[in-house]
Design a protein around this nucleic acid. Sequence first.
DNA 1: GCTAAATGCTCCAGCGACTAGAGGATCAAG
DNA 2: CTTGATCCTCTAGTCGCTGGAGCATTTAGC
Lengths: 134, 134
Amino acid sequence: MRALSIGAVAKATGVKVPTIRYYEDVGLLPTADRTTSNRRSYDETTVRRLRFIRHARDLGFSVEAIRQLIDLSDQPDHSCGDVDSIARLHLADIDEKIARLTALRTEVKRMVDEGAHGRVADCRVIEVLGDHAA
Amino acid sequence: MRALSIGAVAKATGVKVPTIRYYEDVGLLPTADRTTSNRRSYDETTVRRLRFIRHARDLGFSVEAIRQLIDLSDQPDHSCGDVDSIARLHLADIDEKIARLTALRTEVKRMVDEGAHGRVADCRVIEVLGDHAA
DNA sequence: GCTAAATGCTCCAGCGACTAGAGGATCAAG
DNA sequence: CTTGATCCTCTAGTCGCTGGAGCATTTAGC
């Protein structure tokens, strides 16, 4: 496994250099190995983890939720009860997010379709997502 | 339509009172009507809009993206080209989010299922979401 | 080998999106 | 008619980054 500089990791993941350092600060990434001249040195594992963090953040998961998901992944031998309850919690959250996104998708799609025919009628994006509250 | 206090709206939507005022400040909500004693007065329209905002934020949309979606909904007679290009942009984003969430769902579901059988094997949440980058 | 641009380091300040608290007015129940 | 809840404005703090200053190290071209 070859060593990667922080810049190379940034390029590979789309996560900015200062953000990578920040994730280390707050414990989302383990303390990085250093070269003799004190530069951070990474491998592919970090690249994968960073991509995960980026996508999860983009999907609206909090840093704390991501920390939990990473822990689940990191510790396959973790107590089964823990894994199960945490995973179930996130599963419910994920299902809700998918349902809302799908509803929103339908409405935005409808607007695009109607736009194509030159008529933009009653846009109901707000009703659609709003009703999913309750 | 009966008038609602800011507290009633907060209770109805799950959005905190200061956050409602903040959304007014940054223009996500129109300037609220006031009672004679200068208190904000709302109706059901605001409740629906706030629920929309809450869900959209929860799904990782920025305030700016939400502002655009609201504008689409508010102005059905908006120039067709604008609506179309903005809506298409968000549609692509929504599709990506759904794809990633579905992938994540599959993995977390698998963990829950395996947990049920008492064996928590290799957890691959990170690989799964990470691979969807590229 | 030597210099200049690129990249890295730390630390600190700022921004987006809230969130909480002080200090004071108003409302609503007993 | 008082007392507790809710409202107001304003300011300050938090979380999750993001960018810059000032300095060290690395690397590419000569």
